[in-house]
Design a protein around this nucleic acid. Sequence first.
DNA 1: ATCGATCCTTGACATTTATCAATCCGGTTT
DNA 2: AAACCGGATTGATAAATGTCAAGGATCGAT
Lengths: 258, 258
Amino acid sequence: MTLKPTDIVRTRELAFFRAASDETFDRVMSGAFLQRFPSGTTLLLEGDSVDFLYVLLDGSVELGAGWKSKDTTLAILRPVSTFILAAVVLESDALMSAVTLERSEILMVPGESIRRAMSDDPVFGFAISEELAGCYRGLVRSIKNHKLRDSTERLANYLMTQRARQGETDEITLPHEKRVLAALLGMSPENLSRAFAKLSAQGVAVDGALVRFSKVQALERLARPSPLIDNHFAQSRSQLGKANTERQQGVLNDPQNR
Amino acid sequence: MTLKPTDIVRTRELAFFRAASDETFDRVMSGAFLQRFPSGTTLLLEGDSVDFLYVLLDGSVELGAGWKSKDTTLAILRPVSTFILAAVVLESDALMSAVTLERSEILMVPGESIRRAMSDDPVFGFAISEELAGCYRGLVRSIKNHKLRDSTERLANYLMTQRARQGETDEITLPHEKRVLAALLGMSPENLSRAFAKLSAQGVAVDGALVRFSKVQALERLARPSPLIDNHFAQSRSQLGKANTERQQGVLNDPQNR
DNA sequence: ATCGATCCTTGACATTTATCAATCCGGTTT
DNA sequence: AAACCGGATTGATAAATGTCAAGGATCGAT
């Protein structure tokens, strides 16, 4: 599949590619190629040795892992974002599996190109460090979210985050099926239903994918969002001098979340 | 507190300092200084803006976080290791608190020195990326450990890891108080006691800090350690061509664990 | 030797979450 | 319209974990 100009533009939206010189960028992209996958495709299994950086340009991808017949979702990615960067930098095996949740368009960049560019272009190298640091901090937030909050509190904060992203309105649309959302929040679908039911006391009304808030303050009092866990404390778009590369891994990796 | 030659040597044990040229290393260290802290000292609170890379040279440090009157331990560090590297790279606030668990010796390196060296010395910059990638993968392992295993399984795997590190013997010494160990494994001290009791069926006998194994195979069958979660699958020391920079964050950050 | 502090253990109980089964609902096919 | 399907909900139950309280072991200081 050949690369269209529009794919190039979207790829360059990534903070660490924006930091690269044109020369570096062109050299990295010269070995890259685009692939389209149907929904439900396993892109990689944990333990696979892969030497490509994956760039999700369209669709969505679930990162997960399993052990002893149990499975868990670690993150859901939306465009434009990358995955298995850490494995590429260290030339090691993937620790997570990746499965498409819908038809997806994915750019595959040879790992060697990335590593060479890091060595050749210190600005690019620094930007990769920033990206990795952001991913790391996203994981720290995710762990705190899981270890410090019960399922209802996680849902409440998820709703507050969505609300912040969808414009502080009192009606939002859930971007995933509820069972996917449940996996993302680390609970069973049954418990997600019950968590929604509990939040009716805080004025949360669910109708399919639509969620309406009638008592935002009560919800916020329960959610108690924190800038040290949640990443929606909008540096307003304008004052965003330095790109925020942090990822809300394990809660939602959203391109707005830079 | 002035820097002794031995401190310099120990600091250089860090993979990313070993990668640096002498010139880079000297420049980074020129602004650094050593501090000694008694046990129980809070080095930083989550949310603090700090611009130092902390290098633990002696003692041990607990990284933790809290929310709504709850607290959790994220990792326990032993020499030689660093913390808040990600915050330094991104010039942002700490997401975790750090408290000394014993009298500790800590080298503090100005963040600006690190960032400048990353830009000036691409080899050093690359090594920092490797370090960050290793920390990231350590956190992924930690999340998998917590979401896929129950408390008894986590303890069983912790014991297997310690056994591997202490030389595949059938008697090991726990390196922490049991309540610290409980926090590290994400359970209450009470449940740690019960988990030990359950493992007596697998031939685990506890006597204070001493743990004896009489049925290693049974224990291993329950623990089912995996190279995709646990990091003790010894690349034997000799074939260790490339340093393994991965950190077992949240389980134990051990200097052997490179 | 005794006291006291700290840590560990144990039991009873509450809470949280998962699991299983049944049902419901919306949309599509026949 | 009837049948059907997948996802979502609800209820009942079980398992895992946390909390509270009491008691026991250990160690150091007096």
